[in-house]
């Protein structure tokens, strides 16, 4: 079955949506997004601790998209844009905040991303902390991120396992969807 982006986006937008966006991720989009969610989190009356975590994880998530999202693949029957990323921040009833992101990834890269998340999901809180320090200390990552420091930071701040899905789109591209929960 062909991946249906609209359907995915609609499904992820179920709940009390504090922010949603899909399209090209520019620096202006990032600034506006941060401004909006900061205001909405204040309105949502979240406690300080949760608000800080949600904001922090949101920053990391949207900047992941900014740095790593690929273009919409040709032959995917979707409208072309420069880069494409989708992000939704939702507060579900009686449940934690969820940040869902989705972007196209070239097949060459998806294996690494999948392995990285599986690895981080398999670690304890203490192991995540140690790995984070090791990577930070070695400086073995680019200013763009890389080395998985962003993913480790998200895992560390949320304290929850990340959930992901990989949907085939074309011969070369997949759609990578990630859900993180802040409780």
């Amino acid at each position: 079955m062909r991946f249906d982006l609209d359907k995915w986006y609609l499904k992820k937008s179920e709940g009390d949506v504090l922010y949603k966006y899909r399209g090209s991720i520019s620096q202006v989009v990032v600034i506006k997004a941060l401004d909006t969610i900061e205001k909405n989190l204040n309105l949502a009356d979240a406690d300080n601790k949760i608000r800080r975590k949600v904001f922090s994880v949101f920053v990391e998530s949207i900047q992941n998209l900014f740095h790593h999202a690929d273009n919409i693949p040709v032959n995917s029957n979707m409208e072309l844009s420069d880069t494409f990323g989708a992000i939704v921040l939702v507060c579900e009833q009686n449940s934690p905040y969820r940040i869902s992101t989705g972007n196209f990834v070239h097949l060459d890269k998806i294996g690494n991303i999948k392995d990285r998340i599986d690895q981080v999901n398999s670690l304890s809180e203490e192991e995540i902390k140690m790995l984070y320090r090791e990577i930070l200390g070695k400086g073995g990552f680019s200013p763009k991120g890389g080395g998985g420091l962003g993913i480790l930071d998200i895992a560390r701040k949320t304290g929850n396992k990340m959930e992901y899905n990989i949907y085939p789109v074309t011969d070369e591209f997949v759609f990578f969807a990630l859900d993180v929960y802040i409780s």
Partner: peptide, 13 residues
């Protein structure tokens, strides 16, 4: 600092 992202973490180091 109130917030810093992982991109800043290396620069702060």
């Amino acid at each position: 600092l109130e917030y810093f992202n992982t991109s800043s973490s290396k620069c702060i180091l």
